[in-house]
């Protein structure tokens, strides 16, 4: 059976454009608002969605996503709550792939087998575990395989060709290229540096390549969309949540507006371009 992720990337390929992948933190600023944002994202141009599950000690996150996790935890979000959000989203949307992203401790805490079963049951299509490199992923990869959920691996600026082979092995869905050496939301990605790395990842794997970390503006998103199969934007959206909440504005509306502008930039990036 073809997965939702495969189907979506096949569609994108047919349309000759890159996908837009917004990242939001589950439960930020609260469960209800996060669900409203989640439900609204496909309508403003999200092709896939990454949903962060909050952890107290997110070691690869910069201040924006650290703070988002803190807000979500303060509002009472739990992994079970995240799965509930996913389930509610899936009830109304059968097509948009949903990827969970977070840290290993919560998965171990739930139990690897139970986690795999529960995410599949909630309609989640893929999982990214930031602090679980291939060397530590054997059991999780087996469990997710058994549940038909993709374990999405990360390639980075520090990956040489030998390392890319390790990363590509047992990866499914797509490969996530982390475009800067650093934490989320601090350094800015440079499309001219990203392009050759995406090519190298493509040589190591037949899977589509999504690029994220350090993409904040529509201009930057468009530049990356010309060289990658999908563009992930996280911190910029999460900052929107923070700003809107602080100023007592409509959080959902502002995040969706921002997402829409990013989606437009990604969707129109290759117009007029003949080859990718």
């Amino acid at each position: 059976m073809r997965s939702r992720i495969e189907a979506r990337f096949a569609d994108l390929k047919r349309e000759g454009r890159a996908g837009f992948v917004p990242y939001i933190m589950a439960g930020d600023p609260d469960a209800g608002t996060a669900l409203a944002i989640l439900k609204g994202l496909p309508g403003v141009g999200a092709d896939l969605i990454e949903l962060g599950f909050p952890f107290s000690d997110p070691m690869a996150e910069g201040p924006p996503i650290q703070r988002a996790a803190q807000r979500a935890l303060k509002a009472g979000m739990t992994l079970s709550g995240v799965l509930e959000l996913a389930r509610r989203f899936r009830e109304g949307d059968r097509a948009t792939p949903l990827i969970l992203m977070g840290y290993m401790n919560l998965i171990l805490h739930r139990g690897i087998a139970a986690f795999a079963r529960d995410v599949a049951e909630a309609g989640v299509d893929g999982v990214i575990v930031v602090d679980c490199p291939p060397e530590e992923a054997g059991e999780l990869a087996d469990a997710l395989d058994g549940a038909d959920v993709s374990l999405i691996r990360l390639a980075t600026p520090t990956s040489d060709d030998a390392r890319l082979q390790v990363v590509a092995r047992r990866t499914s869905g797509f490969v996530y290229y982390v475009s800067v050496a650093g934490v989320t939301g601090v350094k800015e990605a440079d499309a001219t540096a990203v392009a050759p790395m995406v090519e190298r990842v493509r040589r190591a794997s037949d899977l589509p390549v999504a690029v994220g970390f350090g993409i904040k503006t529509p201009e930057r998103a468009a530049a990356i969309a010309r060289v990658a199969d999908a563009v992930v934007v996280g911190s910029a959206l999460v900052d929107e949540v923070a700003d809107a909440a602080e100023m007592n504005e409509d959080v959902t509306g502002r995040v969706l507006l921002k997402a829409e502008s990013l989606a437009k930039a990604v969707r129109s990036a290759r117009i007029g371009q003949t080859t990718v």
Partner: peptide
């Protein structure tokens, strides 16, 4: 034990 670090750090 093990090496539960982000992929960026694995080569290091």
């Amino acid at each position: 034990g093990g090496r539960f670090v982000p992929e960026t750090l694995m080569p290091l």
